[in-house]
């Protein structure tokens, strides 16, 4: 950024800055929510802010910047975007199913039971086991 690009057009730097700040801001918001929400199932929603348009914004900024500075279309960053979009739901779904399974086997009262299992309302054993 210092010596490789002596003259960068103003619109490029404005667009790159905009997408960078939007992406980083969304990611930070998602992580703050991840820290603040009270239950696991609410926390499941927070990181998707960072993986949807948080990643999208930063990938767009990187694509615009390298396309202008290298003077050829650079779009391999989109692979990171596609990869994150496809893989995050897999991780989150598996984690959600693991959490449901663990909560059900402990008889957690707030979790809807699977249809075959009859629920036994037991005491709240959330905080003890880690």
């Amino acid at each position: 950024m210092t010596d490789a690009t002596p003259d960068l057009p103003l619109w490029t730097s404005l667009m790159v800055s905009f997408f960078l700040l939007v992406g980083a801001g969304l990611t930070l918001t998602g992580s703050i929510g991840f820290l603040r929400f009270k239950t696991f199932y609410e926390r499941l929603h927070a990181p998707t802010l960072g993986t949807s348009w948080g990643t999208g914004g930063i990938v767009m900024a990187s694509m615009i910047y390298f396309t202008v500075t290298q003077q050829r279309p650079v779009f391999h960053e989109i692979l990171v975007g596609i990869f994150v979009t496809v893989t995050t739901p897999v991780t989150l779904m598996l984690l959600a199913r693991a959490a449901l399974h663990r909560d059900r086997s402990e008889g957690h009262p707030e979790v809807p039971g699977s249809s075959s299992l009859t629920e036994t309302p037991e005491t709240f054993i959330d905080q003890k086991k880690s």
């Binding site: 199932y41 998707t48 802010l49 979009t85 739901p89 959600a96 199913r97 449901l100 249809s115």
Partner: peptide, 20 residues
């Protein structure tokens, strides 16, 4: 559908019961 729902913040797919 799972990717769309989980990728959207605010909704997340937990479990699909294929029998019912």
């Amino acid at each position: 559908l799972a990717v769309l729902l989980t990728g959207t913040p605010g909704t997340s797919w937990l479990e699909y019961n294929s029998n019912e």
